[in-house]
Nucleic acid binder design. Structure first.
Lengths: 205, 205, 205, 205
DNA sequence: TCCTAAGCGAGACGGTACGTCTTGTCTTCCA
DNA sequence: TGGAAGACAAGACGTACCGTCTCGCTTAGGA
């Protein structure tokens, strides 16, 4: 019954996994743009035709992979962020994002660089912006009054900052530690963001 | 003698200019990645072979074009920024960058989006980061003491923020005005950056 | 037990019949070369895998089908030809071959044309040559002496002529009648080209 | 002037010639259907893309090649046939067609067999039929009266016979000589089947 | 005035990748 | 056990670009 489909599914999953891994390793070696589908399928020991049974093109493979990864991250981070800023600004910044970057350092070092993909970069930033707005900004929004800046803009500003920080950090071979980086970025952010979302002050006389 | 070269030069310049304009117009229509050199030379009414007499590839054409544009911008902005923050934070933020984005809105709307170029995005950010460090951060660095954050990191954070702001703004068809956007971003930045560069406080007891 | 096998056999025969008919109808529509096994199985409502359980390839299906048809024809024609030329040249030519062509006109119109199959054409000709030699030439061979031409060559010459006649006839939408065509070809065969081109004799009284 | 185009033309002609020769040699080795365009270009040391600059597909290459060959043959044979049958049936049959077959024996042995091409076979037969009608039948047509058979049908009948004779001859490794074959076929044509199978007459004194 | 060198157009070509199509094999299940 | 369903390897297809080359035209300055 469900057993039937499972065996087939497992074979399919194996093929997809091989392609995913081939992509990841090739990105590190050659940069994203330079990779061809030929390369991926050769590395994965899969027929080129088979690639097209599962993915439309290189971007499709990349983004499906990313979606899986980020869904898992989102779930993991969810609870952490949920009450992160409820009790005011915590002394200890959450470094799980920098930690994730470190875990896939080789990959991100390419993908966030000139040899990466514009689409990837922009999508990750949009994803981050959304996460930040939901999990960081929304909880600390004062219930009434118009903020100085549109909250979604603030999300984008912080996301842009984060990505830049990741890039800077990776270029310096991840010095200093993820924890310190996270603290630095948060501290920098916070001094701005609190004001950003505060109710508008009456115009200066 | 110099005359001789001039006429030839003018012919060469004309060809290059045609190629540049062809690239720009095609980016708007199709997105950067989708453009082929065939497209560019056809649009420019130039033989394909001729392209290779002047540029190595599409990126070469793009970056040579960008270099010219940014050199001119840099010169223009230089004096403005020079004494921008000398007298503390000015009431009126400098909107010349947003104005530049607005002038080439169609171009940047593509190039800073998914349909742009990773290399372009990263280079522009690096360029911005350097500008910011030289013209904004350096002047307000206190002469002694270690800042809370490395100044070049701060440059990158702000540059990332700026780029994100441009993107956000272009997606919203440049609402609100360049002046307001510039003010918003500067205000957000400043509340953070001043602290960022302040001498370290003694550790909390 | 024998019952069991019969039912299975019947199922097998049904599948093969479906494939055969699919092939025939597709030949008429698209020409032989242009047909794929996919096409055949789709038309037959049969899984593609199943095709390979019964036939090696497209030619196999075609020739198995042809073998059946021709075996049946051979049996039918056998007695007729047996004493055809025993009593000299009959006034009435045997038109059963032209009649068979007419029965499958759409099929042969394709298969004997440019859109047919070389293998089919050559095989049919060889088959015809053999038939002719056995049923026409052998009976009229004088018992002694060496003929001017090798009898098997004569078989081939006549077979080539027949096929050409079928083609010519089908291209002209089977005008004139099968009976006349058969008579023409036989007369030509028997009397040679000089007669063929001589002015018509007045009908025999 | 014309010099300009010539050099280019010569380069193009060289490429086409390489492809033609590759095709010919591959036909002998593998049979027509089995050849891929890959094979041809590899054998010709030409890029696959280049093939498509000159020919639409395999058939196009084949037929363009054939057209050239046959135009040359037609010109050569023209004068010969012109007065061939004017003085009645010549004692000596024209063997130039069998000689041509012998010259390209390996090629025709494949192309007129099961491993050849239906389109080729049918076209050659049509071409032959036309030639025969123009050069053999037309000259001996009595000026008035309706012939017993339509002359174009007679052309087809003879053409079919010729092709069958070529096939039979090639299968027997070209025994007997081209001259004898030509004589046989012509005699058969002219006198009909009854003569063909009659006991040999003693040689003419 | 002619000469000559450089910019350029035209286009053949080798090469690489594309996305698609078809084939034949296999494995898993169903009736 | 015959067949359906479908994943897969293999490989050819025709197309699209790329980068290189060779050839001649054009043109404008310097001889």
């Amino acid at each position: 019954m469900a057993e039937v489909a499972k065996k087939v599914d497992r074979r399919i999953q194996r093929t997809r996994e091989l392609l995913r891994q081939a992509l990841m390793s090739l990105i590190v070696e050659r940069g994203y743009e330079a990779i061809t589908i030929q390369d991926i399928t050769e590395r994965a020991n899969v027929a080129r035709t088979t690639f097209y049974l599962h993915f439309r093109d290189k971007d499709d493979l990349l983004f499906q992979t990313m979606r899986d990864v980020y869904e898992e991250i989102a779930a993991r981070v969810d609870e952490h962020y949920a009450h992160l800023l409820q009790q005011g600004i915590p002394d200890q910044a959450d470094a799980s994002d920098f930690q994730h970057i470190a875990d896939f350092a080789e990959f991100y070092k390419i993908m966030l660089s000139e040899r990466g993909s514009a689409a990837f970069l922009v999508r990750v930033r949009s994803y981050l912006a959304e996460m930040i707005q939901k999990q960081v900004i929304a909880p600390i929004m004062p219930p009434s009054g118009t903020p100085n800046l549109p909250p979604d803009l603030v999300g984008y500003l912080i996301a842009g900052m984060q990505i830049a920080a990741y890039y800077w950090w990776l270029q310096r071979d991840m010095q200093p530690s993820a924890q310190i980086m996270a603290q630095w970025v948060q501290d920098y952010c916070v001094r701005g963001v609190l004001w950003a979302l505060a109710p508008q002050e009456p115009p200066k006389p």
